[in-house]
């Protein structure tokens, strides 16, 4: 992909993509081997932050600022998901 940005920014974009991808694979490792359910919920939080970062880097690479709406939606939905998982954990132990 040919980027229309200056060399410094191009380097920063590729470097950030690299870091975020490594982070996603580490989250995948913890998701597969995490001993308990709360560990996996923590990974959900991490993946949400990483995908906000990926959206931001994609916006800078292509200039399509519309995708910031997706970042807003993710930031809202993950909070709901966390609260729902916590309620579910507490309710599961009561039964």
């Amino acid at each position: 992909m040919e980027l229309q940005t200056s060399p410094v920014l191009t380097f920063a974009i590729y470097f950030s993509f690299f870091n975020l991808t490594i982070g996603l694979f580490m989250g995948l490792y913890r998701l597969l081997t995490g001993p308990t359910l709360p560990d996996r919920i923590v990974v959900m939080d991490l993946v949400a932050s990483l995908s906000i970062g990926l959206i931001v880097v994609y916006i800078i690479a292509t200039g399509q600022t519309v995708f910031l709406n997706v970042a807003v939606a993710i930031a809202l939905l993950v909070f709901m998901g966390n609260i729902a998982f916590a309620k579910y954990l507490i309710r599961r132990i009561k039964k």
Binding site: V8, N19, L20, M26, D39, S49
Partner: peptide, 28 residues
């Protein structure tokens, strides 16, 4: 461009550190 590149790299490094912490630290 330089300032934005600095913020991008710093932010992605902090996220990478958080991911390493999720793998390395010992409990929830």
């Amino acid at each position: 461009d330089w300032i934005a590149a600095f913020f991008l790299i710093a932010g992605s490094l902090f996220m990478l550190v958080a991911a390493i912490g999720v793998v390395k630290l010992s409990d929830v």
